[in-house]
C-alpha cells in the first residue's frame, strides 16, 4: 500500500531543475498562473518575495514528482502532506486542478508576505532536544512550536529576535544543532490568526472537489473531505504541523511504502527516525 507524501516549502532552490517535458509543462503553468519563471527564478508578472518563489517552486516540484511517480506505475492508496505541501497534495488527489493549486500557493504566499511588511519573522530549527525543553525555551522567548517533526526535530516560528534568542538558548541546553531562516510570516502559529480573514477570502475563490485518493491532514490525522478543505487551509497555517503523529497514523492505516513527492528527502529522514524509535 503506497502513500505519496508532499513536503513543505524548501529552504533553497536545487541548482538543477528537471529537464523533461513534464517539468516544462508544469513550469509553463506556474509562470502563467503565478508570474514566476522557475528556470530563472525571476518574476515575469507582479513580483513577490523570495519565500513566495520558494513556495511556488516547492508546489511545482510536488506536482512534477506526482506526475513522474504515477507515470512510473506508482498508484497511491493515500496521500499525506506537511505544511505547504498541502497545495500540491490537493492537486495530486484531484481536489483542485494543478494550475489552481499553483495559483493558490502564490496567493496564500503573497498574503502571508504582507505580514513581513510590518514585522520581521524567522523560523528556527532545533535538532537533538526533546519536546519539553524545546517548548520551554519557545515560551521563554515568545516564539511558538511550528513543526513537531520527530521526537528530536522541531521547527519554531515567531519574531526574528525571539527566534535568535531561542536558538542560542537551545544550544546552551544541549541541542545537537540549531539553525534559523528568514520567513515572511510566523507560519503555523497563532500569530497568523491576525490575517485569517484575508486568507479565508483567498481560499473562498476556489471550488474543491472530493479527493479521489484519501488525503490525511497533519493536524489531527483525519482524512479531508471537500467540505473540510477551505477551513483546513487557513487553520493549518495557525497551528503546528504534527508530522510524527501523521507518520504513525499513516502506518496504522496500513501503508507499507512511502514515496516523497517534492524537493529533497526531509520527510523520508523524519520517518527513518520515527521508525527507529517506534519499531
Amino acid at each position: 500500500m503506497i502513500c505519496f507524501m508532499f513536503p513543505g516549502q524548501p529552504l533553497a532552490k536545487v541548482p538543477t531543475l528537471p529537464d523533461d517535458a513534464e517539468f516544462a509543462e508544469i513550469a509553463a503553468i506556474a509562470c502563467d498562473r503565478t508570474g514566476l519563471d522557475l528556470e530563472s527564478f525571476a518574476w515575469r508578472g507582479e513580483p513577490a518575495t523570495d519565500q513566495v518563489a520558494l513556495q511556488i517552486y516547492g508546489a511545482a516540484m510536488g506536482l512534477y514528482r506526482n506526475r513522474v511517480l504515477r507515470r512510473a506505475g506508482f498508484n497511491p492508496a493515500m496521500a499525506a502532506e506537511h505544511s505547504m505541501g498541502i497545495y500540491a497534495a490537493l492537486a495530486a488527489v484531484d481536489a483542485l486542478p494543478e494550475g489552481e493549486a499553483l495559483e493558490l500557493t502564490s496567493r496564500i504566499g503573497r498574503t502571508l508576505a504582507g505580514m513581513g511588511k510590518s514585522g520581521s519573522y524567522a523560523l528556527g530549527c532545533v535538532t537533538g532536544l526533546s519536546a519539553a525543553p524545546v517548548l520551554a525555551l519557545a515560551e521563554n522567548n515568545g516564539v511558538y512550536p511550528a513543526n513537531y517533526n520527530t521526537s528530536r526535530h522541531f521547527l519554531l516560528a515567531g519574531e526574528q529576535h525571539g527566534i535568535e534568542a531561542a536558538m542560542a538558548e537551545a544550544l546552551e541546553a544541549g541541542a545537537f544543532s540549531v539553525s534559523s531562516f528568514p520567513a515572511d510570516a510566523p507560519l503555523h502559529t497563532p500569530l497568523i490568526e491576525a490575517i485569517a480573514p484575508e486568507l479565508h477570502n483567498v481560499v473562498a475563490d476556489y471550488r474543491f472537489s472530493e479527493p479521489q485518493v484519501p488525503l490525511m491532514e497533519h493536524i489531527e490525522q483525519d482524512f479531508l473531505t471537500a467540505a473540510d478543505i477551505p477551513g483546513f487551509l487557513v487553520r493549518e497555517l495557525c497551528l503546528p504541523v504534527r508530522w510524527e503523529a501523521t507518520f504513525l497514523a499513516i502506518r496504522r492505516a496500513g501503508v507499507t511504502s512511502l514515496l516523497e513527492a517534492g524537493v529533497g528527502e526531509s520527510l523520508k529522514k523524519y520517518n527513518r527516525w520515527i521508525a527507529m524509535e517506534h519499531g
Binding site: C125, T127, T150, H153, F176, S266, K269, R272, W273
Partner: peptide, 11 residues
Amino acid sequence: LDSIDALQLVV
C-alpha cells in the same frame, strides 16, 4: 548529509 542525518549517526 544534514543535521537530521548527523543525529541518526550519533545514535
